[in-house]
Design a binder for these strands. Structure first.
Lengths: 354, 354
DNA sequence: TGTTAGCACTCTTTAGAGGTGAGTGCTAAC
DNA sequence: GTTAGCACTCACCTCTAAAGAGTGCTAACA
């Protein structure tokens, strides 16, 4: 032990090449097996040049340096959060190499599923969880000052029309409203035109207020105005809070660290509560972000990690997609997938908005 | 034992009043506790008039009649699927009594969440799982011959427009299309009008074909026509398969019968696969339907039950909402909730469609 | 004839007691 | 600096024993 300590002290804090290789081997093995890795395994499977005893010494040093830990005295070692952090940091420093073949697959998978402007967020989460086999989240952040671009009433049948409100930032909503049955398509269009002229460029909040004050509006009856005001305020409320979609959260049950139902439940309950889920996600506008273990600040997520990539919605608006799973995660692959999906989303949203 | 058998034979197959009361007590207790019910429990908590020994005799008879079973010789009894079936059948025979106060709460909860025409199905599933704490499904069945009611292009910005297609049956979709940047709102409306006139009343399938043949259409450029054809065919494909939403599937983890991760996973994997999930659901157009255990014909669901209520979409179209959980389920409450939600949905869809 | 008290019996559940094996730390030799 | 060898630790498995819940059966009672 005293030898180990002196060696560690002597050998400096940053790892020499062999230590690093061994550490990476331990991480790699543990990521695949979820079983504490013994010195013999490393010497056999990875670092054939040295005996298990040598590896043992190195692993002992790595433990002292805080990169490995033992569940109990006579078990193999498992990587600490610090080790994952080191690993991820090297990955992040390298330029992305999303394995073009896989990236292509991602894009195909992605575009085959994400079609409706409406539910991009949900589809994306679905795609991501399918691809990674982890829980996936997609976040469309709060957009406070959405401006109305256009507003349209489309006849649906006797006395009803579909109201469509289009805003910048790609947010579109529709809702059924009752109108006087005398209205035909042309008069609805005329009203839509007047309304659009009058309301375009104003925020949803303003629209709500404007319609509430003018009870009657150049030909449109009060009922319609009220319905529109109602919908605008509802949209303002909805877009005023973050839209977040989670998918594949029960993938967690496939990982041995969650063989305990109690743990799985704790994990899932965090994902279920919007506020707690949001608190896990970092803010990113460029590159990728990874939060590991305690970095998330939620005790239930102590041994989890979240990997996130941003996507751009409008000019200054950024959304976020992410994957949540056990800290033992094939980061390289996950980072690649997220990078590709983020890019694809930016492209898609740019097209929808611009 | 010979005594029990002779008594059972003598006392006829249908249960006398006391047997029934005891059986219901066992079901009630088991539904709440998930622990095999002993004779003593019944005599203490429910049927104070008789001693445990008497109850024991009756329970022995009930076992012989197939309504109760013992996990092992010296355990209490648990209800069989036959018992649940009996219980549910009596409930179904009674006129619904959805406890007006709770029904009111359901309606409020329901209408506060279900707003968008688009995602009724998903919202409903969400509401249901929140209310019942079981997994919930909402099904919008395949609608083969959806006819286009209206079709509208709404300007969004330079070179893009939002295409909205409205069909009967309440199905509405929108999608962003590229248009010549020369088009202003009026010309888009003109095109929309021509297209609507020409296409309204035709099925999505027909629309796809029509647009594919006419490469050019009274002023609308080919690009737009192609985009519309593409979207129509996509809608036809989408509505041609059942839309199904699942929510709250991991509620299952809260029930002790799924303390085993393996079982929970099997359950969840059934809900994940659309085909297997659909196979669980009965066809109902009136009243309510309950499938218990083997009745579902899926081995993983051996000890589950599904409770379903229909809702009416259009003239002859029916959707379905349901709750899936362990066979040990407070059927009375669940039936009440589903009944209310089904009615609310019928009302909502009726409004959207008509 | 139905009901009840009593008792032997069964079977699960829990805790504890070896035994096994994987993996370590340390020492001494190379 | 590296390696072989060895004692040691501790999770995990299996086996056993004891406890406890609940039954079936018998015999007595109303």
């Amino acid at each position: 032990m005293s030898e180990g300590r002196s060696r560690a002290a002597m050998k400096s804090q940053q790892l020499d090449d062999r230590k690093l290789r061994i550490l990476l081997a331990v991480i790699d093995d543990y990521v695949h097996t979820a079983v504490p890795v013994g010195s013999r395994t490393i010497s056999r499977k990875y670092e054939t040049a040295f005996s298990s005893a040598t590896i043992r010494n190195e692993m002992s040093d790595l433990e002292e340096l805080g990169y490995l830990e033992q569940p109990h005295v006579s078990a193999g070692r498992i990587p600490t959060m610090k080790a994952y952090r080191l690993y991820v940091d090297t990955l992040l420093r390298d330029s992305r190499h999303p394995d073009e073949k896989e990236a292509q697959a991602v894009r195909e998978f992605f575009f085959s599923r994400v079609r409706q402007v409406q539910d991009v967020v949900e589809s994306t989460a679905g795609v991501l969880s399918d691809l990674t086999h982890y829980a996936a989240v997609a976040l469309m952040p709060r957009q406070l000052d959405l401006k109305v671009i256009s507003l349209q009433l489309i006849p649906m049948g006797s006395g009803t029309a579909l109201l469509v409100i289009i805003t910048d930032g790609g947010v579109i909503r529709n809702s059924v409203v009752h109108v006087s049955s005398a209205m035909d398509a042309d008069s609805l269009y005329a009203i839509s035109k007047v309304l659009t002229n009058r309301l375009a460029g104003h925020t949803l909040q303003e629209v709500t207020e404007m319609l509430a004050t003018y009870s009657r509006y150049s030909g449109a009856d009060t009922q319609v105005c009220m319905a529109i005001a109602d919908m605008a305020s509802q949209m303002a409320r909805q877009t005023g809070s973050d839209t977040i979609a989670v998918s594949g959260s029960h993938n967690i049950l496939y990982y041995p660290e969650y063989a305990d139902v109690e743990k799985a439940r704790a994990f899932l309950s965090v994902l279920e509560t919007k506020e707690r889920l949001l608190s896990l996600l970092p803010v990113v506008q460029e590159g990728m972000a990874v939060r590991i273990g305690q970095e998330m600040g939620v005790s239930e997520m102590r041994d989890c990690a979240v990997v996130c990539a941003p996507y751009r919605i409008g000019v200054g608006h950024y959304g976020l997609v992410g994957v949540i799973g056990p800290a033992r995660m094939p980061y390289s692959r996950v980072l690649g997938v997220l990078d590709t999906v983020g890019d694809a989303l930016t492209a898609l949203m740019g097209e929808a908005v611009r």
